[in-house]
Amino acid sequence: MQEESNANGKFKGATQYVLDEELAQIVNISMALEMPLLLKGEPGTGKTMLAHAISEALDMKLIVLNVKSSMKLVDALYQYDTLTRLNDSRFGDSTRNVSRIEDYIKMGKIGQAFASEEKVVLLIDEIDKADTDFQDDMLDVLDQMEFDIIEIDKTITANHRPVIIITSNAKKDLSDPFLGRCNFHHIAFPDPDMMQKIVQVHFPDISKELLDASIRAFYKIREFRGIEKKPATRELINWIRALQADPDFKVKHLIKGDLPYLGVLFKKSPDYAASRQAASRMRI
């Protein structure tokens, strides 16, 4: 899927990522305007993968900040390692200078992105997990491209403004000030045609029959009733991998409605049970 080159700093897709033109345009605009890009969409639509693809395509380092619900903003910026300092001061057997607090400051993910000598891609994954204060404060930092380390009274300013990709799982709306500072895009779940391309990127020599049959089965499976977590792209790819690995598997099984390895697609036991039942009643 790699098209021409990604020269002149424009993003055109990567080896393992199928990009639609619209999204490429949005990424490029966000980079040109130096604004964070907020991506929403259901799991498995490739939000996180986009950041990886950008970093690969533009040959920039990727720094990933996985947001957790208990996270405080300062954790993402830097950490002051008091314990090591205390230890050093007692035993004095390290090369660090105990009287220099700076030696004991470790950069968090955002700090690393700012301190980096080269332009990097900063992926802030699943921002919706954190509370609203975290989100707003973080955007302040990203806006100003600097933060203070209180312990040493020093301001860290970004050498280069990183390319910032923020993902959210659409569980709840983010606050207005937050949205105001981001560009926004919602990635819809890929349609079967798009999905064919995606699968082909991952399995360049997949047979046409298997491709068609598995994707048709996959979209039917997604419509099963009473499923809590619908299988997404990642599950489909793993499923096809499992099908290919099985020497006894024939494509006509799928066409007959015999669906092996449902456990690859459904990760929750009630879902698995429900899918088994639904599958036994299904014909493709």
């Binding site: 619209e22 949005i26 605009i29 305007l33 659409a170 709306d173 949205l179 981001c182 926004f184 919602h186």
Partner: peptide, 27 residues
């Protein structure tokens, strides 16, 4: 406006995507 000034938007299709990503913040 900034995006227009920088010449990032060269066609109506560009304008459609650009304006949406910049102005509309919810699907």
């Amino acid at each position: 406006q900034e995006a227009l000034r920088q010449g990032l938007i060269t066609s109506i299709d560009d304008f459609y995507t650009a304006a949406r990503t910049l102005l509309v913040k919810s699907e």
